Simulated assay, not measured.
Amino acid sequence: MADTVLVKNFKYGSRFLNFYCLVDENERPIFAPCLFLFQTAISGQDLDTSKAYAFDLKSFFNILSQSSGKSKEDHLDFRDVSDAQMDGYLNGYLLFQKKLSTNSVQRHITTLRTFYEFSYKYGLLEKSNSYSFEIDSSENKTTMLEQATQTFHQMYITEDEFDEILLSNITTSDPFLRERDEIALKLGYYAGLRTEELVINDNLSLVKLRKQLPKVTKNIPQAFYLTIKGKNGVTRKTLVDVKVTKAIHKFIWGRLKATNSTLMCQKSGKPLKDVNHGTALFRRSIEQYLNNNALEAEDVKAWLKRSYHVLRKCYATNSVSFCYESNLDPRIFVSRWLGHASSETTEDYIIFEALLNKRLELLTELNLENSTFATAYKNKFNKK
């Protein structure tokens, strides 16, 4: 961790300078900020200015030391900070977490802008960093937590909403098709399947499912692992919630008892091939719901923005909660169940779950990389 040290009566030519500098945990000077602070003293800045600069840089470099750089073993170098990460520091850390006033954050911006200009001028940077240095003023916006929570709520569907809006508005009246389509929706919400994964060969093989869910009702598992071949051919084992486990068991030993193809099949037993089956099913349920209910224009717009894939997002978020309740590390298990190629994707849902359930103790632990959610949460979430 960085700290400030007062340097007294440092002889520079015929002058004696007093200024602050930054040292690391071993009390070794941190080169770039020390050189900057020394230069401000040479240029005639008073001690109070040097102290203010040093205080602001101490905050910034301490966050850098807690954030992973190009190699996970190294901390984030000030030369590698992206504009989104700088926004995260200013808005997510200083404004949201530390609750500094807008004027205080503006002072930090002045320090950082001056420091980066100096670093470029004196060859510490290969190119000038064009940071936006924008902050969200509380005078004309709601708090960042409220903004983030509101945005994520537009994507997240509660279990009650899932039952009352999606399952209850399946349009088919055919008992077989209705039971199948209820399971298709549940596999998104309770197992995290993508729409195309519903019809990929062998994902929902009845032979495989019957081995895992035998007919003897006494031994129906509360939950089970389902091997799924998904995006880019990557295979994962997803944890299937009991609320879809029971529905699958009933279907495969009931209406599908004479069929040996796949769970997602026609009444004839012929497998479905349409990769957009889940998407179309989701859309029909939403349209049915909107046709039968008078909603505000904003609510209608929010529902029309959703698609089948949002069910997977809900599963990911609910899985984070399940991990906390079960004393499991969501970074490990949610990543496995969803097949996330990047740990950052899992981190997105951990942060959303913290926002959703007001786990403030987790929000205060976000490092620079993760705190970009304070300003960039919309773009990051929509990319997943």
Rank of each mutant, 00 (worst) to 15 (best):
L198F: 15
L304I: 00
R210D: 04
T195N: 09
V242W: 14
E196T: 13
I228H: 06
L239W: 07
W303Q: 08
T238L: 10
H309F: 10
D274F: 02
Y315Q: 07
L290V: 14
L204W: 14
N203L: 14
A302N: 03
V275M: 10
H277Q: 03
T227P: 01
R306E: 03
L290F: 08
G230R: 01
L206Q: 04
A223T: 00
L204A: 08
K218H: 10
N293S: 09
R284S: 13
V216D: 15
G269D: 06
K246Y: 09
T217K: 13
N292D: 12
V310E: 15
R283W: 00
A223W: 10
G254P: 10
L209S: 03
L256E: 02
T217M: 02
P221H: 01
K229D: 04
K257T: 09
K229F: 10
G230D: 06
F224G: 03
V275F: 10
N219C: 06
K246W: 04
N260E: 09
Y315I: 09
K208S: 15
K237N: 12
F251H: 02
M264L: 14
L193G: 00
E296C: 01
P271R: 05
N291F: 06
N276G: 02
Y225L: 15
T259W: 00
V242F: 14
F282N: 08
E296L: 11
K215R: 07
K208T: 15
T238V: 05
A294N: 07
S285V: 11
L256S: 02
K257H: 05
S307C: 13
K273G: 06
S261V: 02
W253R: 03
S307G: 15
A302M: 13
S268E: 11
V300I: 15
L304R: 08
T245A: 11
I220M: 05
Q266D: 01
K273E: 14
K270F: 13
E298A: 11
L295A: 06
T227I: 13
T227Y: 06
H309S: 14
H277N: 03
T279H: 04
Y308T: 00
R306A: 05
E298R: 04
K237S: 09
T259H: 07
S261C: 00
L272D: 00
I248K: 01
Y289W: 05
K301I: 02
V199E: 02
L290R: 04
D299M: 11
G233M: 07
L263A: 12
R255M: 13
K273D: 10
I286W: 03
L295E: 03
F224D: 00
L290I: 15
D202K: 14
